[in-house]
Design a protein around this nucleic acid. Structure first.
Lengths: 227, 227
DNA sequence: ACAATAATTTAGATTAGTCTAAAATATAAT
DNA sequence: ATTATATTTTAGACTAATCTAAATTATTGT
């Protein structure tokens, strides 16, 4: 039976997990920015979590942190909660895809193992969330998933939207109007090197669309091999 | 838009509401006992909540507290959450009637207005909870409900179980085995003045049952008029 | 009516999570 | 290689919620 952690600690671990996708170690500043707290608070928390028993973080002064296995388990558990909850809110309670995030962010810390399990059963043990994200399984193993962003694609390439970041309702509504939902196929028509804009043709949409870097960096894609 | 209150504050208000059913003012000691905190902590909280703006409690030194209208609204909101959640966990997620309480106790502080509303709709705007308790309506008005306890009934009287206290899983399982669920009709067969035991004949049960005061004081009843 | 007992309140301390301001350390630039 | 800039850490302080121990106020029994 694991010691009950505060919502705050869980939020730190979740965020460290997310940012670890890009960099080996996550720095004080990144977390401070993402969690909207001061860098001093982050340093403090890094130290506390590294001194837990067992340690949840591996912390090196001035070089940031890495999750320990313990810490990662907790992050994955919360992520599983979050993604199951988002789906549940949509499927069972009729939330739209831009409304689910905020509610799931609060509920994820509070539901029991039993709740998690029941929701998983009701939803038929899904492996992908409402916004396409992989859902860690019961044993907290993360399914394989692509790691490329639309941002890095270039003309001629074809791909499928895999998942989109879920936290900004306005952004999600925008994506929907453009047909940029998980599973949507597209091809890159043009790339503009000065602003990193990409022009896409999305299957089933009449008009081509042009997307800036701040959009394309939020979209994970599966790149189709040229045939 | 009301200021966000801590779970702790909500728990105090909820408990004060519950204990106010019996006494006009609720004392420090009662709350300390019910919430399992020290009397000193309770005094402190009483003072803080009475000094809020607007005040949530009307506090008189050494005489305990009474909810203000503001305070009562919050208590009723939490109670509505709790009772809707218990039903929801049972109906939608298949929890048994002794398992719902602990989960609802955590979720009640965290769900949004929207969640509350969606759950109410899915459940068809119920007026009674899983254990028979009245559910405050959307405007936080408490429906009329009986205030008598089985404890105070005497031989010859007939009644219907209205509601049972929901917090002890073992007690709830016991009640179910005895057929003592909301809606069950019964008549009082015998009363034993020394230990306050009551002997009941519950409709549909073969055997008469004898219940001690610590059980009968937990059961709200609707007393049937003799015909 | 007054002492004994019980309940409540005050005082002072602790912990988690946060902050600002100052100090220390890295990184980058010339 | 040395200075300038940016980042991180330390130090000290605040708030909410709790505690224990001591002081105060009520209640009760004779």
């Amino acid at each position: 039976m694991r010691k009950r952690l505060s919502d705050t600690v869980e939020d730190y671990l979740k965020m460290i997990y997310k940012l670890s996708a890009d960099t080996e170690r996550v720095g004080t500043g990144q977390i401070a920015e993402a969690l909207e707290v001061s860098p001093a608070s982050v340093t403090d928390m890094f130290q506390r979590l590294a001194n837990e028993n067992p340690p949840l973080l591996d912390y090196i002064k001035h070089q940031g942190v890495k999750l320990t296995n313990e810490g990662r388990k907790i992050a994955l558990e919360i992520l599983r909660h979050h993604r199951l909850l988002e789906l549940f809110l949509h499927e069972v309670l009729g939330y739209s895809w831009d409304q689910v995030h905020a509610e799931a962010d609060r509920l994820e810390h509070v539901i029991s193992e039993k709740f998690e399990e029941r929701v998983a059963v009701v939803l038929g043990d899904p492996q992908r969330g409402l916004h396409g994200e992989p859902i860690p399984n019961r044993n907290l193993e993360m399914p394989d998933h692509p790691t490329s962003y639309l941002h890095d694609m270039r003309p001629e390439q074809r791909g499928v939207i895999h998942s989109v970041s879920d936290d900004d309702p306005g952004f999600l509504r925008f994506l929907k109007t453009q047909g940029l939902v998980p599973g949507a196929e597209f091809s890159v028509v043009d790339f503009s090197p000065y602003d990193n804009n990409l022009r896409l043709q999305v299957n089933g949409q009449d008009q081509e669309i042009v997307l800036g870097a701040s959009v394309t960096a939020q979209l994970k894609v599966e790149i189709k091999n040229a045939s």
